[in-house]
Design a protein around this nucleic acid. Structure first.
Lengths: 246, 246
DNA sequence: AGCGAAGATTACTCAGACAAATAGACGCCC
DNA sequence: GGGCGTCTATTTGTCTGAGTAATCTTCGCT
C-alpha cells in the first residue's frame, strides 16, 4: 500500500478540466470498481488518507461525497467510510461506468451491458419511429453521414456512432430512456474501443445503421425494432469475440 | 426568494439519519427537480447562499458536490453553480427520482417511467425464469405471501411488492439491470402511493403476481415475459387513471 | 448474565484565509 | 473601426485548525 499523491505538485491533474476533488473521486472510484478496495472494506480515516494523498481534508471529503452520491461508499461517524455492496452501486451513472471501463471491466459487466442494450434499444427504436420529429431525422442522418465519412477507426466516427444511438433515445421523448443514453453509449464505446484487438476486420456496420435510420424516418416502428435488434446483436457478437481474445 | 434555514436550530433535520450536507442536497435537489430553480439558472454564490441557509460554506459545498455528482448542477469558477439541462440529469439515480416524487412529478415523467417498465420488466422476467436459483424462488414466494397477507394498503405490503420486483431483477444476474431496480421500484411505489385517490377499488393484483412467479419458478421464459407484461400493463393503466384524477 | 454508563474514535460542522481560474472590461495596436 | 492581448474583479477551489456530534466498545454495576 504505497503512498500515492493524487498528482505531482506542479502538474496537478492530467485532464486539465477536472478539479482536485473530482480527480480524487476519479482515482478512488477506479480503485473501488477495479476491486482494489473491496465492498465491506473500510477506508483509512479522513485525516490519514488525506495526508497520504497530500490534499486537504476538505478536498478529500468532497471526493467522498461524490462517491457516496453514486452509491460506492457510505460514511458513518465512529465507523468510517465503508465500500458498499456492489448491488448498491449506481452502475447506470456515466462516471461509474467510465471508471469501470478505465480498469478493464469484468466480463460479466460487459455482457450485462449488451444484454441491456438488446432489451432497450430495439424498443426505443420502435418508439422513436413513432415520435421522431423532422429535425431529429436530419440530425440522425448527419450523424450517420459523419460516421460513414470518418470511419469507425477515427474518434470522430466513433463519436458520431454514439451520437446516433443517443439521438434515437432522444427521439423517444422518454426522459428516463434518455438518461439511459450514457449507459448505452458506454456499450457502444466499448465495441469500437476493443475492435483493434481483433485480427479479422469487423464487418461494415453501416448498412445496419442505415436500415435503422430508414425505418425510423419512415415511421415504421416494427421495422425499426427489427433493424436495431440486428444491429445490437451484431455489435454484441463482435464484443463477445473481443472478450475471447483477452 | 425568502431566507429559509435548512432546519430549525435545535431540531436540525427531520429524517434523523440524514447529515446536514445530505439534507441540504435533498432540499436543493427537490427545489431543482420541481422547477423552483430552472435549468440555466445560476445559484446565488456560495458565501451568500450558505449564509442564507445558516450553514457553513463547507457543508453547502459538499451538498453541491452531491448534486453535481447526480448531474443536476455544474460549478465553474467565476461563473458560479448553474442548474444543468434536464437531459443531463441522472434520472435513474434513486435520490433524484425520490426528489421528483416528493414534489408531484410531471405527468410525462410518470408515463415515461411506466414505458420503461413495460420495456424492461417483461424481458427481465424472461431472463429470471432462465437463471433464477432455488433460494431466489423462495425469496420471491415469501415476498408475495407477505404482500398477500399484509395487503397493498399497508406499508409492509407495498414494501413486499417492491421486494418482489427487485428480486426478479436480481434473478437476472445482470448487474446493470439490478441497478435499474431502484428506478423500477419508484414506479411501483407510485402506483400504490396514489391508489388512495381513486374512488373505485383497484382490481386485486395478486393473481397476476402469482402468474409471474409461477412462470419464473417453472423456468418458463416466454410465460414469465407475458405474465409480467400483463402485470405492468395493468399497473400502468391504473396509474393513468390516477393521473386523470388530479 | 444482563444492563447502563464512560470513554475513545470517527466523521461532521464550523470559521477564516489564501489560491486559482476565468468572464468581461479595457486599452492598445494595426 | 476592428481585432487582440492584458488586466481586473468575481467566483469557486483549496487549505488549515478547531470544536461538535454520533456511536461502537469497554467496563463496572446490579
Amino acid at each position: 500500500m504505497s503512498a500515492s499523491p493524487v498528482q505531482a505538485r506542479p502538474g496537478r491533474r492530467k485532464a486539465g478540466k477536472e478539479r482536485l476533488h473530482g480527480s480524487i473521486a476519479h482515482q478512488l472510484g477506479v480503485e473501488i470498481v477495479s476491486g482494489r478496495h473491496q465492498p465491506g472494506d473500510i477506508l483509512t480515516n479522513e485525516i490519514e488518507f488525506s495526508e497520504r494523498l497530500q490534499v486537504s481534508r476538505s478536498a478529500y471529503r468532497e471526493a467522498v461525497r461524490i462517491l457516496a452520491a453514486k452509491g460506492l461508499v457510505e460514511s458513518r461517524p465512529r465507523v468510517g467510510t465503508r465500500v458498499t455492496e456492489m448491488n448498491r452501486w449506481n452502475l447506470l451513472d456515466p462516471d461509474v461506468l467510465a471508471w469501470f471501463f478505465e480498469a478493464e471491466p469484468a466480463r460479466a459487466l460487459v455482457e450485462g451491458l449488451f444484454e441491456l442494450r438488446m432489451i432497450v434499444e430495439p424498443a426505443a427504436a420502435a418508439l422513436a419511429a413513432e415520435r421522431r420529429t423532422g429535425p431529429q431525422i436530419e440530425a440522425m442522418r448527419e450523424a450517420l453521414q459523419t460516421m460513414e465519412r470518418a470511419g469507425l477507426k477515427t474518434e470522430a466516427g466513433q463519436s458520431a456512432d454514439r451520437d446516433f444511438h443517443q439521438l434515437v433515445l432522444d427521439a423517444t421523448g422518454n426522459a428516463p430512456l434518455v438518461s439511459l443514453a450514457s449507459t448505452i453509449g458506454a456499450g457502444v464505446r466499448w465495441t469500437t474501443f476493443y475492435k483493434g484487438r481483433k485480427h479479422k476486420l469487423p464487418p461494415d456496420p453501416m448498412p445496419e445503421h442505415w436500415a435503422v435510420f430508414d425505418a425510423i424516418a419512415a415511421g415504421d416502428a416494427g421495422g425499426a425494432r427489427k433493424a436495431m435488434d440486428v444491429l445490437v446483436a451484431n455489435s454484441r457478437a463482435q464484443a463477445a469475440e473481443a472478450l475471447e481474445d483477452r
